[in-house]
Design a protein around this nucleic acid. Sequence first.
DNA 1: AAGTGGTCTAGACCACCTA
DNA 2: AGGTGGTCTAGACCACTTT
Lengths: 255, 255
Amino acid sequence: MGKILAINRKSYQPAYAQIVDSIRHQIALGMYLPGCRLPSESQLCKQFQVSSVTVRRAINVLVNQGIVDTSQGKGSFVKPLKLGNVSFHLNELQEIFEDNENTQVKLVFARIMAAEKSIAQKLQIPEGDRVIHIRRLISNHNIPLIYHHQHMIYDPSQPVVEAELDLTSLGGLFVGAGKTNLKKGLLNLKLATLNEEEALHLKGEFGVPAFRLEHTFFDLKDRQVSWGWFIFFEKSLNFSAKVGVWKQSQEVDDV
Amino acid sequence: MGKILAINRKSYQPAYAQIVDSIRHQIALGMYLPGCRLPSESQLCKQFQVSSVTVRRAINVLVNQGIVDTSQGKGSFVKPLKLGNVSFHLNELQEIFEDNENTQVKLVFARIMAAEKSIAQKLQIPEGDRVIHIRRLISNHNIPLIYHHQHMIYDPSQPVVEAELDLTSLGGLFVGAGKTNLKKGLLNLKLATLNEEEALHLKGEFGVPAFRLEHTFFDLKDRQVSWGWFIFFEKSLNFSAKVGVWKQSQEVDDV
DNA sequence: AAGTGGTCTAGACCACCTA
DNA sequence: AGGTGGTCTAGACCACTTT
């Protein structure tokens, strides 16, 4: 055995991170079972020979990681696995966009048109106002992965719109590289089946089920700037997530 | 104007949370644009009249919230919106399971059988070993929402299995109420179309696209205990997420 | 050399819970 | 009353980056 009970001051790893690892490890081994109380902070202070602030920090990290729950006056407890804690990330999507070398964006359609009722509603503008409608195909290694529809308010004086007008780039929008003046976004993951146009571009079959990721972006003044969706199927992109305690050291997030 | 530049010591809100709110607010207003540097820690200390530790804590919260990035020796910067930061949660699923009053779980099928190849593979057991196969229908307010398939290793001596053998309950498994001895889980969100059986129970149409949430759970010894999936469609459950800066005060997560 | 983030301490005070 | 988590300080030291 011989699990770290003291902190290695010479380690490149800060003390609080070592404590996090140590506790994670003990939970993973079943030494602290779900629902059980962890040693109190003052006990941990003695055990690890660190100040209370450092112990607190470690515990906060564990709380952030969803592994531990604290309750004032009672103690800190190992949290049982909970499905509601799961979160899915769009890392894969992100990676595609970041892989500049091998990712191409092809502009399939671009037109300025009067907003139909449904679009006007989504963008919170009067029906008939001019909007830019764009459709793009995103491929990686020449394999078509994602089809993108986007409707934007037509106002070239707005910096956001201007940035997006580089139609074949992805803009800072999706990679976060640029200094987009977008403040916030709302995403919605839905189901769809490929229509003929999409099936054609994605080289899928008509009627095949697909993910449809809808997005609405807002500028700094909380105005809706764009609305659209990405469509792709399971082969291209998958959503996976982990819950509970995996390995003992997963890059202590922070505090 | 008139935004809090000093901390209210009498507030129920801790100082670090007030700083978080203040900075969030300024980012939201566009006073700090994406990519811009925030005032240095020492400046913030003076501005808010707090110690460096308190400022650091506030900044760490902002980093956790994905709004700010720090870089040693350089400074702290407002992070541009990034799609990759989005995360989808299963809160809605969670809520259904927690709504005990109105949620019913109906056992549709339960049998002990020899593991087929595919199942054996998923559970990492020899083909032919006995597994429990369960199918359940989860309804809320008598509206069928989710259909659940689950395959479990047959070993009643294992506490996890024993707990799950209360077939019509959801076990602590999904609500986190119990002291399940599960250590970790792996989830996968996929696409499917309803088969006849599922369509029947969910009162949907055959062939309609649906979400399929696959799960694998592991016990404390890293053994795979169960494998299965939830199937449901968009009407029943939706996935939404936010990115960027929403309101100024969203329950400062922690540190 | 000066500025910036990152870590840590020893001790203080508070609010809450269990006796 | 005594234990537990939660917050905060004033100052220290380190590592990194810029000038």
